[in-house]
Amino acid sequence: MSTEWKLFADLAERAGDKHVAVDAAAGDTVGDALEALLDESPDLEDRVLDGDGELRSQINVLRNGTNVLVEEEGLETELDEDDELALFPPVSGG
Rank of each mutant, 00 (worst) to 15 (best):
53 G>R: 08
51 G>N: 11
21 A>W: 01
14 R>G: 07
88 F>A: 10
19 H>Y: 12
90 P>T: 10
6 K>N: 15
34 L>F: 06
61 V>N: 08
58 Q>N: 12
56 R>P: 02
54 E>D: 14
51 G>C: 07
37 L>G: 05
42 P>N: 11
20 V>F: 01
52 D>T: 04
46 D>G: 12
7 L>W: 05
72 E>W: 00
70 V>P: 00
54 E>N: 11
74 G>R: 00
61 V>Q: 06
30 V>C: 07
93 G>I: 02
32 D>S: 06
39 D>S: 14
54 E>T: 06
10 D>Y: 13
78 E>Y: 04
90 P>R: 08
31 G>F: 10
60 N>I: 14
46 D>C: 04
19 H>V: 12
56 R>H: 04
44 L>A: 08
74 G>F: 05
5 W>V: 11
88 F>C: 07
37 L>C: 07
67 N>P: 07
70 V>Q: 14
16 G>K: 03
54 E>Y: 01
59 I>W: 05
42 P>H: 10
69 L>I: 07
53 G>K: 05
77 T>H: 11
17 D>I: 01
72 E>Y: 02
26 A>M: 08
62 L>S: 13
63 R>W: 00
81 E>A: 13
79 L>H: 09
68 V>N: 11
16 G>M: 05
34 L>C: 04
17 D>C: 07
32 D>P: 03
19 H>M: 06
68 V>K: 03
33 A>S: 13
43 D>M: 04
38 L>H: 11
57 S>R: 09
83 D>F: 02
28 D>C: 03
88 F>P: 09
20 V>N: 11
84 E>A: 14
32 D>I: 01
43 D>G: 07
51 G>R: 05
39 D>A: 15
9 A>C: 11
9 A>T: 10
87 L>M: 11
40 E>V: 00
68 V>I: 06
93 G>P: 09
46 D>H: 13
10 D>E: 15
86 A>F: 01
37 L>W: 05
28 D>Y: 02
3 T>S: 09
50 D>F: 00
8 F>L: 11
24 A>G: 08
73 E>V: 01
76 E>T: 02
89 P>S: 13
34 L>A: 06
18 K>Y: 01
67 N>W: 03
52 D>G: 06
43 D>R: 12
86 A>T: 12
92 S>A: 15
49 L>C: 03
7 L>V: 09
90 P>V: 06
18 K>C: 04
65 G>L: 02
78 E>T: 02
